[in-house]
Computed example of a mutant assay.
Amino acid sequence: MNRGVIHIDESPIPLERWRQYLPRWLKRYLPVRGGRSHDHHGKAIFGFTVFLLSESIVFLSFIFTYVGLRLTHSETWLPVGVSGPKLSTFVIINTVVLLSSSFVIQPAENSLKHHQLNKFRWLWLLTICMGTYFLISQGIEWSNLDFGLRTGLVGSTFYVLTGFHGLHVLAGVILQITMLVRSFRQGNYDKGHFGVSATTLFWHFVDVIWVFLFSLLYLWQA
């Protein structure tokens, strides 16, 4: 295949004309029409963005279910003797650590773009540690709660929401570890770093979802 081949944009809608007016941060998530055959990074990121949108629909279905059940069972939401999840300093610190990791992983990706490999590795490793801290802290929180998965609606909804999100955090950490290991392969990222970009985007997604879950599960209780 000739990588110098030009793909002509034959779309009847002038997407590229509209695309030039968008901010740079948004352009990275949209497909590039036309261009050279090897300009695949933008198209791949767009495909991954569509995947995350499908994941967001699953989370939204859980969130709307939680809200509906909470509103229709407000009087019996907490069984007798159950206090439910509490907004504690421990939970706040855990949340701050997770959300702050987005401000670490993005500079890590930017460092890789500028071929600052060692800086990328250290920032990437710090993100891994922050994600791992969140998972361990969430496990500690679960062990100290006064309700379980079968404790009425409060138990089933809380553990399903936080557990499903926790699986995504775990997946993000595993992806980060994979990208870090690959950085030690000679010249691995010389021709592109889609894996790092996709992992960074996935991590931002995980953080945004936690903002909604934190507001529903803890702030609504406060």
Rank of each mutant, 00 (worst) to 15 (best):
I174Y: 07
S61F: 10
F120C: 03
Y29N: 13
D9F: 06
S137V: 06
F164E: 01
P107G: 03
W220I: 05
N2I: 10
W25E: 07
K191Q: 15
E10I: 08
S74T: 11
E141C: 01
L219T: 09
V97T: 10
Y189N: 06
G163F: 05
H40W: 06
V104I: 15
Y133T: 15
Y133V: 11
A198V: 00
R70A: 02
N144Q: 13
S11G: 05
F158Q: 01
G148I: 01
H168K: 06
V211T: 08
V82Q: 02
S74M: 09
L15Y: 15
F212S: 12
F134I: 01
V196T: 06
M1C: 11
F202M: 07
L135I: 12
L30P: 12
L112E: 06
D9T: 11
D190R: 11
R28N: 12
H204E: 02
F62A: 01
S183Y: 04
Y218V: 06
Y21K: 13
Y133H: 13
F214R: 07
V32P: 03
K43G: 11
F194Y: 14
T127M: 08
H73F: 11
M1L: 13
F214E: 08
G4K: 12
F90Y: 14
S61Y: 04
S100Q: 05
V50K: 11
V154D: 00
T72R: 08
S88Q: 07
V67T: 08
K191R: 15
V80D: 14
T151R: 01
V181D: 03
G163D: 10
I8F: 11
I105S: 01
V97Y: 04
L219C: 10
A44S: 12
M179Y: 05
V211R: 02
L117T: 11
W220P: 00
K43Q: 14
L213S: 05
I93S: 10
L78M: 13
S215T: 15
F205I: 02
L175F: 15
F46V: 07
D39F: 09
L71S: 08
V58A: 13
L69G: 06
V208T: 13
A198F: 00
P85I: 12
V97C: 08
Q221V: 12
M130P: 00
N94M: 13
W220Q: 10
Q20M: 12
T76L: 07
